[in-house]
Design a protein around this nucleic acid. Sequence first.
DNA 1: TGAAATGTTGGGGCG
DNA 2: ACGCCCCAACATTTC
Length: 432
Amino acid sequence: MKKVSIFWFRRDLRLEDNHGLYQALKENENVLPLFIFDKNILDKLDNKADARVDFIHDQIGKIHQELAKKGSSILVKYGDPEVIFKELLNEYSITAVYTNRDYEPYATTRDEKVTRLLNKNHIQLHRYKDQVIFEPGEILNGSGEFYKVFTPFSKVWLSKFHSAKPEEFKPMHWKNLLQTSALELPSLQEISFTKSDISIPSKTADEDIIAHYNQTRDFPAKKGTSRLGIHLRFGTISIRKLALKASELNATYLNELIWREFYMMILAYNPQVVDQAFKPAYDRIPWRNKEEEFAAWCEGKTGYPIVDAGMRELNSTGYMHNRVRMIVASFLTKHLLIDWRWGETYFAEKLLDYELASNNGGWQWAAGTGTDAQPYFRVFNPTSQQEKFDKNWKYIKKWIPEINSDKYPKPIVDHKFARQRAIDTYKSALNQ
DNA sequence: TGAAATGTTGGGGCG
DNA sequence: ACGCCCCAACATTTC
């Protein structure tokens, strides 16, 4: 049996500045890169033309080609990771396994199982910090507890960041890759998926966009946001490089990266937020949950142009501008009084840049149920939001061509009425 | 990273 | 010059 060390790729699909890969190559010879299409995750996706799976498949293909140039290859498997590792133990003499940490509830459980399996075989699973600047537990308050409010968290984050800037992991010791002929990659069909017709934007972060982020980010008709979400999700860019760039270019943008880590930390310490309000009292709200209203929201037929434009952008591109995400989330939870979990699930299915921690945090923020939440009586006015952020109707017209015709629906509910209903409903639920 | 209602202030018109 | 009113602009409170 061939003696190898394994580097297990997950949400870090790049060869440059990859912490775990760097360590594996530095400390071992014959490093075999591995990727597993995780059946546990993929089986839950109903859409078998999911652009994210397509994207991952493409990225693995690119890594495969890059490794071939170095005389190596990536081993790609499809199945339950624990089962796959059992098989690998029979095929290879494994000296160690390296990987980067992932803090989501499922990932944590999976990694514990794999750790137990490997340890039984006297193999270590070495895990490294790679997808964040500061991971859960690194930023705590004076009493050693996690922060429940963003602002003090961000102050500590920034001071730590400025006192010790992250460095790129290089040079990579490529000579320690296992030299092997190219291993076969499974096709999309072999993992039960097909090509999506949604294409993923390139990862070249336009520096101008980041530099002007604070001035342009709120206007959905402009190219004012980086659209790097999916690349942060799957690790096709390095958070270290991006955070350094952000700290040079735009404090507001850097702040968004801190929000990302804030919500990752909140999720790691409070895994129950996946399906419960961070503030338990808010689970007493009697959601109306009208199916037909939810359908109208999903389809972009609420009769509120800024809401409908956002939902249509999401449905046809897998992306929605961040300002509009807040507006549609406020509308669903406040105007229609539909459970934030319904909206969160819909976003999870549609958003290419879907990140559990951020999506959950954002929805709980909008619904007013989360940490550092907006008070429940803050109800976005979809009309004034539109007047502020899309006053020339440019974004709206792009996504709702029939906006001025009689085909466009009348408002699903009167704003003034719905606002009052939301405030009253929240108030009486919380006073119980 | 609200919005709407209510309160305050101060300038200008006017007797 | 003064008081009064109106009202816009801004500030504060309330939901």
